Amino acid sequence: MTHHPTAVPSGTPASAIRRPAVEFRAVTKRYGSFTAVTDVSFAIETGTLVTLLGPSGCGKTTTLRMIAGLEQTSTGQILIGGEDVTTRSAAERDVSMVFQSYALFPHMSILDNVAYGLVVGGMAKKQAEEAARAKLELVGLAGLEKRLPSELSGGQQQRVAVARAIVLEPRVLLFDEPLSNLDAKMRRRVREDIRQLQQSLKLTVVYVTHDQEEALAVSDRIIVMAGGKIAQDGAPRDLYERPASRFIADFIGDANIVPAALAGRDGALGRIAVGAASLTLPHRDLADGPVELAVRPHAIRLAEPGEAGGVPGRILYAAYLGDHMEYEVAVSLAGRDVTLFARSADVDHPRAIGDAVSVGFAPQGVTVIPG
Protein backbone atom coordinates (compact mmCIF):
# COMPACT_ATOMS: atom_id res chain seq x y z
CA MET A 1 0.00 0.00 0.00
CA THR A 2 1.46 3.37 -1.01
CA HIS A 3 1.36 6.04 1.69
CA HIS A 4 0.89 9.71 0.86
CA PRO A 5 2.13 11.80 3.78
CA THR A 6 1.30 15.48 3.96
CA ALA A 7 3.90 17.54 2.13
CA VAL A 8 6.45 19.23 4.40
CA PRO A 9 8.93 21.93 3.31
CA SER A 10 12.44 20.54 2.84
CA GLY A 11 14.72 21.18 5.78
CA THR A 12 11.90 21.12 8.34
CA PRO A 13 13.13 19.26 11.46
CA ALA A 14 11.12 16.14 12.29
CA SER A 15 10.34 17.52 15.76
CA ALA A 16 8.62 20.54 14.20
CA ILE A 17 6.23 18.47 12.06
CA ARG A 18 2.81 18.43 13.68
CA ARG A 19 0.29 16.69 11.47
CA PRO A 20 -3.41 16.56 12.29
CA ALA A 21 -4.51 13.21 13.72
CA VAL A 22 -7.44 13.17 11.27
CA GLU A 23 -7.99 15.31 8.20
CA PHE A 24 -10.89 15.42 5.74
CA ARG A 25 -10.25 17.13 2.41
CA ALA A 26 -13.41 17.93 0.43
CA VAL A 27 -15.01 14.57 1.28
CA THR A 28 -18.35 13.65 -0.28
CA LYS A 29 -20.31 10.43 0.25
CA ARG A 30 -23.14 9.39 -2.04
CA TYR A 31 -25.50 6.45 -1.88
CA GLY A 32 -26.90 6.28 -5.40
CA SER A 33 -28.72 9.57 -5.99
CA PHE A 34 -28.65 10.51 -2.27
CA THR A 35 -25.74 12.58 -0.97
CA ALA A 36 -25.17 11.91 2.74
CA VAL A 37 -22.06 14.09 3.16
CA THR A 38 -21.20 17.03 0.90
CA ASP A 39 -17.71 18.52 0.43
CA VAL A 40 -16.72 18.26 4.11
CA SER A 41 -13.26 19.46 5.20
CA PHE A 42 -11.79 19.62 8.72
CA ALA A 43 -8.64 18.75 10.67
CA ILE A 44 -8.49 17.25 14.17
CA GLU A 45 -5.45 17.88 16.36
CA THR A 46 -3.70 15.05 18.15
CA GLY A 47 -4.78 14.63 21.78
CA THR A 48 -8.14 16.42 21.44
CA LEU A 49 -11.73 15.25 21.73
CA VAL A 50 -13.84 16.49 18.83
CA THR A 51 -17.57 15.80 18.67
CA LEU A 52 -19.62 15.47 15.50
CA LEU A 53 -23.03 16.77 16.55
CA GLY A 54 -26.30 17.13 14.74
CA PRO A 55 -29.86 15.89 14.30
CA SER A 56 -30.69 12.50 12.82
CA GLY A 57 -29.75 12.25 9.16
CA CYS A 58 -27.22 15.11 9.24
CA GLY A 59 -24.27 12.95 8.12
CA LYS A 60 -22.36 12.69 11.41
CA THR A 61 -22.42 8.88 11.69
CA THR A 62 -21.53 8.48 8.00
CA THR A 63 -18.56 10.79 8.60
CA LEU A 64 -17.43 8.71 11.60
CA ARG A 65 -17.77 5.49 9.60
CA MET A 66 -15.64 6.97 6.83
CA ILE A 67 -12.89 7.71 9.37
CA ALA A 68 -13.15 4.09 10.55
CA GLY A 69 -13.02 2.73 7.00
CA LEU A 70 -16.47 1.16 7.35
CA GLU A 71 -17.67 3.42 4.52
CA GLN A 72 -15.63 4.52 1.51
CA THR A 73 -15.63 8.10 0.22
CA SER A 74 -17.22 8.96 -3.12
CA THR A 75 -14.78 11.84 -3.63
CA GLY A 76 -12.13 13.57 -1.52
CA GLN A 77 -9.31 12.43 0.76
CA ILE A 78 -9.04 11.17 4.35
CA LEU A 79 -5.69 11.40 6.14
CA ILE A 80 -4.81 9.84 9.50
CA GLY A 81 -1.54 10.95 11.05
CA GLY A 82 -0.65 12.66 7.76
CA GLU A 83 -1.03 9.47 5.72
CA ASP A 84 -3.65 9.10 3.00
CA VAL A 85 -5.93 6.24 4.11
CA THR A 86 -8.77 6.99 1.68
CA THR A 87 -8.63 3.58 0.01
CA ARG A 88 -7.40 1.56 3.01
CA SER A 89 -9.57 -1.01 4.76
CA ALA A 90 -10.74 -0.57 8.34
CA ALA A 91 -8.06 -2.99 9.56
CA GLU A 92 -5.29 -0.85 8.02
CA ARG A 93 -6.24 2.48 9.58
CA ASP A 94 -4.98 2.22 13.19
CA VAL A 95 -8.30 3.32 14.67
CA SER A 96 -10.63 1.65 17.19
CA MET A 97 -14.36 2.17 17.52
CA VAL A 98 -16.60 1.93 20.59
CA PHE A 99 -20.05 1.04 19.29
CA GLN A 100 -23.43 2.09 20.64
CA SER A 101 -24.27 -1.56 21.40
CA TYR A 102 -20.82 -2.21 23.04
CA ALA A 103 -20.50 -5.38 20.84
CA LEU A 104 -19.02 -7.47 23.66
CA PHE A 105 -18.75 -11.26 23.25
CA PRO A 106 -21.37 -12.60 25.70
CA HIS A 107 -19.67 -15.99 26.20
CA MET A 108 -16.23 -14.50 26.99
CA SER A 109 -15.00 -13.15 30.31
CA ILE A 110 -14.31 -9.43 30.62
CA LEU A 111 -10.56 -10.12 30.49
CA ASP A 112 -10.87 -12.21 27.31
CA ASN A 113 -13.07 -9.55 25.70
CA VAL A 114 -10.44 -6.89 26.27
CA ALA A 115 -7.51 -9.11 25.27
CA TYR A 116 -9.25 -10.43 22.14
CA GLY A 117 -7.95 -7.89 19.63
CA LEU A 118 -4.36 -8.33 20.80
CA VAL A 119 -4.55 -12.14 20.61
CA VAL A 120 -6.08 -12.02 17.12
CA GLY A 121 -3.28 -9.62 16.16
CA GLY A 122 -0.69 -12.22 17.10
CA MET A 123 0.32 -11.27 20.64
CA ALA A 124 1.03 -14.08 23.10
CA LYS A 125 -2.00 -14.74 25.29
CA LYS A 126 -0.19 -14.11 28.58
CA GLN A 127 1.15 -10.77 27.34
CA ALA A 128 -2.27 -9.81 25.95
CA GLU A 129 -3.91 -10.60 29.30
CA GLU A 130 -1.37 -8.45 31.15
CA ALA A 131 -2.14 -5.52 28.84
CA ALA A 132 -5.87 -6.15 29.25
CA ARG A 133 -5.61 -6.18 33.06
CA ALA A 134 -3.78 -2.85 32.98
CA LYS A 135 -6.49 -1.25 30.85
CA LEU A 136 -9.30 -2.69 33.00
CA GLU A 137 -7.63 -1.17 36.05
CA LEU A 138 -7.37 2.13 34.18
CA VAL A 139 -11.14 2.20 33.58
CA GLY A 140 -11.93 1.20 37.16
CA LEU A 141 -12.83 -2.46 36.60
CA ALA A 142 -9.95 -4.22 38.37
CA GLY A 143 -11.24 -7.35 40.13
CA LEU A 144 -14.03 -7.99 37.61
CA GLU A 145 -11.85 -9.74 35.01
CA LYS A 146 -13.58 -13.14 35.34
CA ARG A 147 -17.15 -11.88 35.04
CA LEU A 148 -19.27 -12.18 31.92
CA PRO A 149 -20.72 -9.03 30.26
CA SER A 150 -24.22 -10.04 31.44
CA GLU A 151 -23.04 -9.78 35.05
CA LEU A 152 -22.11 -6.09 34.66
CA SER A 153 -24.22 -2.92 34.63
CA GLY A 154 -24.63 -0.91 31.45
CA GLY A 155 -22.04 1.62 32.60
CA GLN A 156 -19.53 -1.14 33.40
CA GLN A 157 -20.10 -2.76 29.99
CA GLN A 158 -19.40 0.61 28.38
CA ARG A 159 -16.08 0.81 30.26
CA VAL A 160 -15.16 -2.70 29.06
CA ALA A 161 -15.80 -1.55 25.49
CA VAL A 162 -13.52 1.45 26.08
CA ALA A 163 -10.79 -0.77 27.60
CA ARG A 164 -11.00 -3.14 24.62
CA ALA A 165 -10.56 -0.22 22.24
CA ILE A 166 -7.66 1.52 24.01
CA VAL A 167 -5.69 -1.69 24.67
CA LEU A 168 -4.91 -1.66 20.94
CA GLU A 169 -3.31 1.80 21.41
CA PRO A 170 -4.97 3.19 18.29
CA ARG A 171 -3.98 6.47 16.71
CA VAL A 172 -7.64 7.57 16.87
CA LEU A 173 -10.47 6.35 19.12
CA LEU A 174 -14.00 6.63 17.72
CA PHE A 175 -17.23 6.72 19.76
CA ASP A 176 -20.61 6.18 18.08
CA GLU A 177 -23.43 7.43 20.36
CA PRO A 178 -21.71 5.69 23.31
CA LEU A 179 -24.14 6.72 26.05
CA SER A 180 -27.50 6.25 24.35
CA ASN A 181 -28.22 2.94 26.15
CA LEU A 182 -27.66 4.38 29.64
CA ASP A 183 -30.03 6.18 32.02
CA ALA A 184 -29.55 9.90 32.67
CA LYS A 185 -27.50 9.58 35.87
CA MET A 186 -25.23 6.88 34.39
CA ARG A 187 -24.78 8.92 31.19
CA ARG A 188 -23.39 11.78 33.25
CA ARG A 189 -21.00 9.51 35.12
CA VAL A 190 -19.72 7.64 32.06
CA ARG A 191 -19.22 10.80 29.99
CA GLU A 192 -17.08 12.16 32.84
CA ASP A 193 -15.10 8.90 32.82
CA ILE A 194 -14.55 9.13 29.06
CA ARG A 195 -13.44 12.75 29.25
CA GLN A 196 -11.08 12.11 32.17
CA LEU A 197 -9.56 9.09 30.43
CA GLN A 198 -9.14 11.01 27.16
CA GLN A 199 -7.36 13.88 28.91
CA SER A 200 -5.13 11.73 31.14
CA LEU A 201 -3.97 9.53 28.24
CA LYS A 202 -3.98 12.41 25.70
CA LEU A 203 -6.10 10.29 23.37
CA THR A 204 -7.35 11.60 20.05
CA VAL A 205 -11.10 11.00 20.12
CA VAL A 206 -13.83 11.58 17.53
CA TYR A 207 -17.19 11.35 19.26
CA VAL A 208 -20.64 11.23 17.67
CA THR A 209 -23.80 12.24 19.51
CA HIS A 210 -27.12 13.98 18.89
CA ASP A 211 -27.20 15.16 22.54
CA GLN A 212 -26.16 18.83 22.79
CA GLU A 213 -25.52 18.74 26.54
CA GLU A 214 -23.30 15.69 26.16
CA ALA A 215 -21.32 17.41 23.41
CA LEU A 216 -20.86 20.59 25.47
CA ALA A 217 -19.68 18.53 28.46
CA VAL A 218 -17.01 16.37 26.82
CA SER A 219 -15.62 18.29 23.84
CA ASP A 220 -12.59 20.41 23.11
CA ARG A 221 -14.32 21.26 19.86
CA ILE A 222 -17.69 20.58 18.26
CA ILE A 223 -18.41 20.19 14.56
CA VAL A 224 -22.15 20.72 14.04
CA MET A 225 -23.52 19.10 10.91
CA ALA A 226 -26.78 19.75 9.10
CA GLY A 227 -27.90 18.33 5.77
CA GLY A 228 -24.55 16.62 5.18
CA LYS A 229 -22.54 19.83 5.60
CA ILE A 230 -20.69 21.58 8.42
CA ALA A 231 -22.98 24.23 9.90
CA GLN A 232 -20.44 25.52 12.45
CA ASP A 233 -17.12 24.33 13.85
CA GLY A 234 -15.73 25.68 17.11
CA ALA A 235 -15.21 25.43 20.85
CA PRO A 236 -18.33 24.63 22.91
CA ARG A 237 -18.49 28.15 24.38
CA ASP A 238 -18.22 29.75 20.91
CA LEU A 239 -21.12 27.70 19.56
CA TYR A 240 -23.30 28.38 22.60
CA GLU A 241 -22.54 32.10 22.99
CA ARG A 242 -21.86 33.07 19.34
CA PRO A 243 -24.01 30.87 17.10
CA ALA A 244 -23.30 31.42 13.40
CA SER A 245 -26.90 30.92 12.29
CA ARG A 246 -30.49 30.56 13.42
CA PHE A 247 -30.13 26.77 13.16
CA ILE A 248 -27.13 26.67 15.52
CA ALA A 249 -28.79 29.05 18.01
CA ASP A 250 -31.88 26.87 18.09
CA PHE A 251 -30.02 23.55 18.15
CA ILE A 252 -27.26 24.14 20.73
CA GLY A 253 -29.09 24.32 24.04
CA ASP A 254 -32.52 25.86 24.50
CA ALA A 255 -32.93 29.25 22.85
CA ASN A 256 -35.80 31.63 22.21
CA ILE A 257 -35.58 33.21 18.75
CA VAL A 258 -36.79 36.76 19.36
CA PRO A 259 -37.42 39.63 16.87
CA ALA A 260 -35.58 42.86 17.72
CA ALA A 261 -34.09 45.95 16.09
CA LEU A 262 -30.49 47.17 15.84
CA ALA A 263 -30.73 50.93 16.40
CA GLY A 264 -27.19 52.27 16.18
CA ARG A 265 -23.72 51.19 17.22
CA ASP A 266 -20.65 52.19 19.17
CA GLY A 267 -17.62 50.27 17.99
CA ALA A 268 -18.30 46.54 18.21
CA LEU A 269 -21.43 47.08 20.33
CA GLY A 270 -24.94 47.81 19.12
CA ARG A 271 -28.05 49.23 20.75
CA ILE A 272 -30.74 46.57 20.54
CA ALA A 273 -34.42 47.30 21.09
CA VAL A 274 -36.59 44.36 22.17
CA GLY A 275 -40.02 45.91 22.46
CA ALA A 276 -39.72 48.44 25.30
CA ALA A 277 -36.54 46.76 26.56
CA SER A 278 -33.07 47.92 25.50
CA LEU A 279 -29.82 45.93 25.43
CA THR A 280 -26.22 46.62 24.46
CA LEU A 281 -24.73 43.65 22.61
CA PRO A 282 -22.05 42.89 19.99
CA HIS A 283 -23.72 43.77 16.66
CA ARG A 284 -21.76 41.07 14.78
CA ASP A 285 -21.44 43.34 11.72
CA LEU A 286 -25.17 43.44 10.98
CA ALA A 287 -26.79 46.54 9.48
CA ASP A 288 -29.19 48.71 11.46
CA GLY A 289 -32.77 47.49 11.25
CA PRO A 290 -34.63 44.26 12.08
CA VAL A 291 -32.52 41.47 13.60
CA GLU A 292 -33.13 38.25 15.50
CA LEU A 293 -31.78 37.42 18.94
CA ALA A 294 -31.07 34.06 20.54
CA VAL A 295 -32.23 34.41 24.15
CA ARG A 296 -31.36 31.60 26.57
CA PRO A 297 -34.08 30.70 29.10
CA HIS A 298 -31.94 31.79 32.07
CA ALA A 299 -31.53 35.27 30.52
CA ILE A 300 -35.25 36.04 30.79
CA ARG A 301 -36.15 38.01 33.92
CA LEU A 302 -39.73 38.00 35.18
CA ALA A 303 -40.84 40.98 37.30
CA GLU A 304 -44.08 42.55 38.47
CA PRO A 305 -46.27 44.10 35.74
CA GLY A 306 -45.51 47.67 34.71
CA GLU A 307 -41.77 47.62 35.47
CA ALA A 308 -39.96 50.31 33.43
CA GLY A 309 -38.19 48.97 30.37
CA GLY A 310 -39.98 45.62 30.53
CA VAL A 311 -42.18 43.88 27.96
CA PRO A 312 -45.73 43.04 29.14
CA GLY A 313 -46.36 39.30 29.29
CA ARG A 314 -48.63 36.63 30.69
CA ILE A 315 -47.75 33.19 32.14
CA LEU A 316 -49.07 30.37 29.94
CA TYR A 317 -47.38 27.45 31.69
CA ALA A 318 -45.54 26.89 34.98
CA ALA A 319 -43.68 23.80 36.24
CA TYR A 320 -41.70 23.15 39.42
CA LEU A 321 -38.49 21.13 38.78
CA GLY A 322 -36.94 21.05 42.23
CA ASP A 323 -34.11 23.56 41.91
CA HIS A 324 -35.84 25.84 39.39
CA MET A 325 -39.13 26.83 37.81
CA GLU A 326 -39.88 26.63 34.11
CA TYR A 327 -42.35 29.00 32.45
CA GLU A 328 -43.86 29.73 29.08
CA VAL A 329 -44.66 33.41 28.73
CA ALA A 330 -46.78 35.07 26.03
CA VAL A 331 -45.49 38.45 24.79
CA SER A 332 -45.96 40.66 21.74
CA LEU A 333 -42.77 41.75 19.95
CA ALA A 334 -42.44 43.55 16.61
CA GLY A 335 -46.15 43.03 16.00
CA ARG A 336 -45.85 39.27 16.51
CA ASP A 337 -47.18 37.01 19.24
CA VAL A 338 -44.17 35.20 20.73
CA THR A 339 -44.03 32.47 23.39
CA LEU A 340 -40.87 32.62 25.50
CA PHE A 341 -39.45 29.68 27.43
CA ALA A 342 -37.92 30.88 30.71
CA ARG A 343 -36.16 29.36 33.72
CA SER A 344 -36.11 30.92 37.17
CA ALA A 345 -34.15 29.91 40.26
CA ASP A 346 -36.88 31.47 42.45
CA VAL A 347 -38.83 28.41 43.56
CA ASP A 348 -40.13 30.06 46.76
CA HIS A 349 -42.32 32.58 44.94
CA PRO A 350 -43.64 30.73 41.89
CA ARG A 351 -45.85 32.49 39.39
CA ALA A 352 -49.18 30.98 38.43
CA ILE A 353 -50.73 30.38 35.03
CA GLY A 354 -52.52 33.56 33.96
CA ASP A 355 -50.33 35.93 36.01
CA ALA A 356 -49.37 39.20 34.33
CA VAL A 357 -45.60 39.86 34.37
CA SER A 358 -43.00 42.26 33.01
CA VAL A 359 -40.32 40.53 30.92
CA GLY A 360 -36.73 41.78 30.93
CA PHE A 361 -33.53 40.39 29.41
CA ALA A 362 -30.12 39.90 31.03
CA PRO A 363 -27.32 40.58 28.50
CA GLN A 364 -25.47 37.42 29.54
CA GLY A 365 -27.22 34.72 27.54
CA VAL A 366 -28.46 36.92 24.68
CA THR A 367 -26.75 37.15 21.30
CA VAL A 368 -27.52 38.66 17.91
CA ILE A 369 -27.94 35.97 15.23
CA PRO A 370 -25.97 36.79 12.07
CA GLY A 371 -27.44 36.27 8.62
Rank of each mutant, 00 (worst) to 15 (best):
A90M: 12
P106A: 05
T73V: 14
S101H: 14
Y31H: 05
G117W: 02
Y116G: 03
E45H: 10
I44H: 04
T62D: 00
R25F: 06
A103I: 12
Y116S: 09
P55K: 01
T28M: 12
I80D: 03
R30W: 08
M66T: 02
A21Y: 08
Y102C: 11
S33D: 15
L53D: 01
G59E: 11
L52Y: 04
T38S: 15
A26H: 15
L111C: 04
G57A: 08
A43H: 08
Q77D: 13
V85T: 01
V95S: 09
G57Y: 03
S56P: 07
T51M: 11
A68D: 02
G121F: 11
R30H: 11
A68N: 11
T28A: 05
H107C: 10
F24R: 10
P106G: 02
V95Q: 01
S89T: 15
V85C: 05
A68E: 09
I44N: 00
G76V: 10
V98N: 07
V95M: 12
G54C: 11
D94V: 03
D84E: 09
R30K: 15
A103P: 06
M66C: 07
G122M: 13
M66Y: 03
T86L: 15
F24Q: 09
T61N: 08
M97G: 08
I17W: 02
G81D: 07
E92R: 12
G54Y: 10
A115K: 04
I80N: 05
Q77V: 15
L104H: 02
G32M: 15
G59R: 03
S89E: 15
R30I: 04
R19E: 13
S41M: 13
F105A: 00
G82P: 06
L118T: 09
L104G: 07
E45Y: 10
R65E: 13
T51L: 14
L64Y: 03
E45N: 12
T46R: 11
E71M: 09
A103K: 10
K29W: 09
V22M: 06
T48E: 10
E92D: 14
L64W: 04
H107I: 08
V27N: 01
K60F: 00
E71N: 02
V119S: 04
R93G: 05
E92K: 13
V37T: 07
R93N: 05
S96A: 14
I17H: 01
G76T: 02
F42L: 13
